[in-house]
């Protein structure tokens, strides 16, 4: 086992202070010219220690806070293949995590110190804290590239994907606060429970409907689709089911029965797809107070969507189509 730089700082401080005291004592005992030399030496030592401690403690804070931690390995032999920065430079940020405690049903707020560089993401920081400061932190994540939709959280009050939010850009007053979404039931720490959300999605029957189901299942010939037809539904098919739009929606937050922007955007996605043959029946199914008409058009869902889906516009177009029906009936 090899001692790391951080150990040297730590043990350096522990050994250094008594040595310093002894040197001063000797200086005082000898008096005169010796005292001057020894005091200068002591002052230099103090200075070095302060510098070491300042840099050293930072590093200790990041890497060595785990109580039982004792393993230190040398880095890889191929200098190009090292995964972790050898020396972590960066800006000190307080990361405030609102951690939902499922046993007390209360929010435990904890602050962690973190040293971020210009590429650190909020997710990266939380996972580093989990690895080296507090193993008990939980967040849901997977792809870390903004496509799996796992890590929807609230960063400084704004609904965001943790993996594609740059930490230093999010800093306000040297702090970043990360909380779970409140538009979904809480599970643990920053992870939400998605069961209701998935059920809402399922309830609008989000799948292609064809009159000839047998032909659809056999899939012998491709359906043609012009680029204009494609562009009509393509933006709405970008939904990654992260749930951020529901968190942002003021209606969902006051009326949990509202189908919500995600499910409604998917109604439009399949309605606008030229391959779908369910036609307007899709829209009639959500022609209700808890469907399309529940939307009060605050537009916050479209603003929150990290993939530019724009559920708000989908719902307004839906309302427009449904209005036509009223006039057609007359």
């Amino acid at each position: 086992m090899k001692a790391s730089r951080y150990d040297i700082f730590m043990y350096g401080s522990i050994i250094g202070v008594p040595v310093l005291l002894i040197l001063i004592t000797i200086g005082l005992y000898l008096g005169g010219g010796y005292a001057y030399t020894v005091t200068v030496l002591a002052a230099l030592l103090v200075l070095t220690l302060v510098v070491f401690a300042a840099t050293g403690i930072k590093e200790i804070y990041i890497h060595r806070t785990y109580p039982g931690s004792r393993k230190v390995f040398g880095r890889g032999t191929d200098e190009h293949a090292s995964t972790k920065p050898k020396v972590r430079k960066g800006e000190e940020v307080d990361i405030v995590l609102d951690r939902f405690n499922n046993e007390t049903s209360k929010m435990d707020t904890k602050t962690y110190k973190f040293y971020a560089d210009r590429l650190t993401t909020v997710l990266g920081a939380i996972l580093d804290i989990k690895a080296y400061q507090d193993n008990t932190v939980s967040i849901r994540c997977n792809c870390r590239m903004g496509i799996c939709g796992s890590c929807g959280v609230v960063v400084n009050g704004k609904p965001r994907l943790a993996c594609e939010t740059n930490l230093l850009n999010a800093v306000e007053n040297r702090r970043v606060r990360v909380s779970p979404m409140l538009g979904h039931p809480l599970l643990k720490d920053m992870a939400n429970n998605f069961e209701d959300f998935f059920e809402k999605h399922r309830s609008v029957e989000p799948f292609l409907y064809r009159e000839d189901e047998r032909e659809r299942e056999s899939a012998r010939h491709e359906y043609g689709q012009g680029s204009e037809d494609l562009s009509r539904f393509l933006p709405y098919s970008y939904c990654i089911m992260c749930g951020l739009c529901l968190d942002a929606c003021p209606v969902v937050n006051s009326n949990p029965n509202f189908a919500g922007p995600q499910a409604l955007s998917q109604v439009w996605r399949y309605y606008a797809d030229s391959r779908d043959q369910k036609g307007k029946k899709r829209l009639f199914d959500v022609d209700t107070e808890e469907g399309a008409w529940g939307c009060e058009f605050s537009g916050s869902c479209s603003k929150a969507c990290p993939k530019g889906v724009g559920p708000a516009s989908a719902i307004q177009m839906m309302k427009g189509e449904l209005m036509k029906r009223i006039f057609e009936d007359k």
Binding site: F207, E217, A219
Partner: peptide
């Protein structure tokens, strides 16, 4: 996949 709704580039 065309028949279950993938928006293939055309």
């Amino acid at each position: 996949f065309d028949h279950i709704g993938v928006p293939w580039s055309r």
